[in-house]
Amino acid sequence: MVKKIKNLKEFSLSNDRFEGANLMCPGCSHNIIVREVLNATDDPVIVATATGCLEVCTAVYPKTSWDVSWIHIGFENAAVAAATVSAAYEVMKKKGKLPPATQKMVDEGKEPKIVAFAGDGGTYDIGFQSLSGAFERGHNFMYVCLDNEVYANTGGQRSSSTPIGASTTTSPAGSVSYGEKMMKKSMVEIMADHGAPYVAQVSPSKWKDLVKKVQKGFEVYGPVYINAQSACTTEWKHAPEDTIEVSDLGVDSCVWPLYEIINERDEHGIIYSTKLNITYRPKKKIPVEEYLAAQPRFRHLFKPENRHIIDLWQKAVDARWEYLQRREEAGV
């Protein structure tokens, strides 16, 4: 059942199913994303979390911060855990063997929603194989990547999501290096190329866009991938109170464009239509420099010898924004 959320006041009527006094850092975006995703529906939710900040800090023995059914699984297999729940649910439902409480919910039109949360390390890198497999098999679940562009939970190592020039503990900036050397992996397109019915990129600062996309994702049948920008005060090194501002700078500079890709397949699995929609267009596209300047992980780029990396950044962001607009225009 789609929850009606016309505006923020209406959204604030939601009763959170994710609890306070968890041990996430003050000002952490992961928490904001989880709240927005869970509050996007009033249906029962079953969550699987990959190891990472979210899992480790919301289940510190002897306490839990989850009021939904919750599965603690490995670093590399959140997608498989969620896919397995989905497969089991479908078989039990078909055989009429759902637990009575679940059956009652289903009869009332409240189908359980199955969601996997994982970090970028758990998604772009170590969990990629199980994620790709679950999407290829077409299980009915949603996968949300909490993308803070670093292995935050283990002390800030680079991942294949870390963007060029970021200083991390395994790509430190110094007298011989400007930090990370590789460009960020295009995870959204990679997941869309699996033929998934719905793939989207979101930011917690644009709550309405995020909630709308999550609701769309819950409505389609099949695997859904949501790539969520997650400003990390500890590893991006901005002040905790600036989390929303840094997120907005990312969106308004088009470093973090908000868009969705919708695939339609026939009964043989042939993709006959792909559409890309840009869901937010900044009124004024701000220079990437402003986004970088707000985060001390990029501080060294402002030295004269590293300035060329900022130029490269702008070029890369402009090219990608162009590409997205061309795809939207062409309807592919």
Partner: peptide, 17 residues
Amino acid sequence: QFCWVFCPDMSILSRDK
């Protein structure tokens, strides 16, 4: 309700909008 939606720690108490 901006404070409600962006509080990471469920620490803003809102009732009936």
